[in-house]
Design a binder for these strands. Structure first.
Length: 561
DNA sequence: CACCCTCGCGCC
DNA sequence: AAATGGCGCGAGGGTG
């Protein structure tokens, strides 16, 4: 059974089933009806999960299967190479009827809704939300069928929709966060709490030390230019005030400067203000943005959910009697590249749990590789650089020669990313395994790279822009395919988790499940199975690549890894 | 005053 | 020497 449910312009909800339509529902009525209908295991069709589902989640209603019309529209527009169009129901309806989509607030903004966006674009007179959804749905099905691999695109739309459900649920449930431990940590590092806008005691002292080391003239350590100027006065030329540049410098100000940078970052990004704003009732509740990144990775808005610093992970703690099952896919991207390219030799390497260690042996054991004089890395570290260079397009330092060695030994894998890079350099779009599609380069890029360069400088600029876009598309095929896989994994896992265990965090290639301790084993097994299932769905049952998960049932996130 | 850019650094 | 991908965010510093 299919159920269409969404918010109307007046804020009320409509729920449409094959046998009935309920109009004018308030939030409570919507939730009650949804709970009842969910028992039959329908496929819900929402104009936008993000706009509708939080209402149900807040009322304690969870749905198993859904289809997000807006997310699907965004993926299809990208697939078709249509730029600058809104993915809203209103715009999709207009396009389905060969009409010019009306002006909306801002197509870009609507394509990536901001926090708590509740604006519902007005449909034309006489067109109901349900009518529009049905029309757009039929059109989307036609567009999927016209794609090169309809079954892959269908899987992508389903997985992305399920991801949106998971995101809304995680935002509501929240990540267990011990504010008391966080405060203790802040006080021990920074000194007693200070009002917003003030420097904590320890930072004040460090700033004074820094100025003193520069001869008493005031230097603002928060201002990179100020630091660069102060160093210049001391006879030390640095291009910028970055940490890695400062590290090698012999000057009494450097020690306190580096300490200041670290602590000031803690205070500014995750200090008392952050705690007040983002943690309540023992939970950190960030807002995840599914489809927020072109490659299919999630973004987050506010709270920096995808950058929880390592030092604070000790504050992420399971409730008494519960555990956090922290799982991350080990070296996901090189494994995805192996599967994408079908590189047999690399698949043998990817049989190892530590792919880079095994790759180091394959590349360097008994080989003729002569490391650079200043290279004190081990084989594993060198192998990692070689692989990252293939996936990111790095050429500096030893990366170039290492990539050459990798190409010699694993031509299929390396040529896969190099073809993607060449396509990007020509301004073409590339696709992930399931059909996520890279955007076309900007008009400015085309102007820069398109014409005949007038002189050498212009030629160089054009070449640089072209290479830059090639690095983007090179990385896109891998990063976006990894996002395909984690979306499918998340969709599968969400279904398989034994209640009351639930997802509380997801970040690129890592999930955290909060579970009663006695279910931790079962949760771990569900995670392993979900990854295996995702790999099978993306790459087929014959795919030889292993995707090992590092799974740790822990009391605190800090104890994972 | 709002707005926008760059820098720098946190995460993957 | 350099030119490794994707993000969010806060501070500084400039603009209108």
């Amino acid at each position: 059974m299919q159920v269409i449910a969404g918010r109307e312009e007046n804020g009320s909800f409509t729920v449409h089933t094959p046998s009935s339509t309920a109009n004018g529902l308030d939030e409570a009525g919507f939730a009650a009806l949804a709970r009842e209908l969910e028992a039959a295991g329908p496929r819900w069709v929402f104009p936008s999960v993000e706009l509708v589902y939080p209402v149900l989640v807040a009322a304690g209603v969870r749905v198993r299967r859904c289809y997000d019309v807006a997310l699907a529209e965004g993926l299809l527009l990208a697939y078709e190479g249509v730029e600058g169009q809104s993915r809203s129901l209103r715009a999709a309806w207009a396009r389905a009827n060969d009409e010019e989509p009306p002006e909306e607030a801002d197509a870009v903004e609507l394509a990536q809704p901001t926090l708590f966006e509740t604006h519902v674009p007005t449909l034309p007179e006489g067109v109901t939300m349900v009518t529009a959804v049905r029309r757009v749905l039929a059109e989307q099905e036609r567009r999927v069928a016209a794609a090169e691999h309809p079954e892959r695109l269908r899987l992508l739309l389903a997985a992305e929709s399920a991801s949106a459900l998971a995101a809304a649920e995680m935002s509501a449930d929240g990540l267990p966060w011990r504010a008391d431990l966080h405060e203790q940590l802040l006080v021990s590092r920074l000194g007693p709490r200070v009002p917003a806008g003030q420097r904590p005691k320890v930072l004040v002292e460090l700033a004074a030390k820094i100025s003193e080391a520069f001869g008493g003239r005031p230097v603002n350590p928060d201002s990179p230019p100020s630091v660069v100027r102060a160093l210049a006065r001391a006879g030390i030329e640095v291009p910028a005030a970055r940490k890695y540049l400062l590290k090698g410098i012999d000057h009494p100000a450097v020690g306190p400067l580096l300490e200041y940078k670290e602590l000031s970052r803690l205070h500014a990004a995750n200090g008392w203000a952050w705690l007040d704003e983002w943690v309540a009732e023992g939970r950190f509740r960030p807002h995840y943005v599914v489809g927020g990144v072109v490659s299919g990775r999630w973004a987050s808005r506010g709270g920096g959910a995808l950058q929880i610093p390592k030092v604070l992970r000790t504050c992420v703690r399971a409730d008494p009697g519960w555990l956090l099952v922290v799982a991350d896919a080990a070296q996901l991207e090189p494994r995805v590249l192996t599967a994408l390219s079908g590189d047999r030799q690399l698949a043998d390497v990817a049989a190892a749990t530590d792919l880079y260690a095994r790759l180091g042996e394959a590349l360097f054991s008994g080989g003729r590789w002569v490391p650079a004089a200043d290279d004190d890395r081990d084989d594993r570290a060198r192998a990692k650089i070689a692989m990252l260079s293939a996936m990111y397009g790095g050429t500096s330092g030893e990366a170039g020669p290492l990539l050459g060695l990798l190409r010699q030994r694993f031509p299929a894998a390396v040529s896969y990313v190099e073809r993607a890079a060449q396509a990007g350099e020509r301004g073409e779009r590339v696709r992930s395994r399931l059909g996520r599609t890279s955007p076309a380069p900007s008009a400015a890029w085309r102007a820069l790279t398109g014409g005949l360069a007038s002189d050498e400088a212009a030629e160089l600029k054009a070449r640089r822009a072209s290479r830059g876009w090639g690095r983007f598309t090179r990385n896109f095929v891998v990063q976006a395919s990894a996002a395909d896989m984690t979306a499918v994994m998340l969709a599968t896992l969400r279904q398989r988790l034994p209640a009351p265990a639930h997802l509380v965090f997801f970040q690129h290639d890592e999930v955290i499940v909060h579970t009663p301790a006695e279910l931790a084993e079962e949760v771990s097994a569900a995670i392993t199975d979900s990854v295996t299932e995702a790999a099978r769905m993306l790459f087929g049952p014959a795919c030889p690549v292993r995707f090992p998960m590092q799974i740790a049932p822990v009391e605190t996130y800090a104890d994972a890894k």
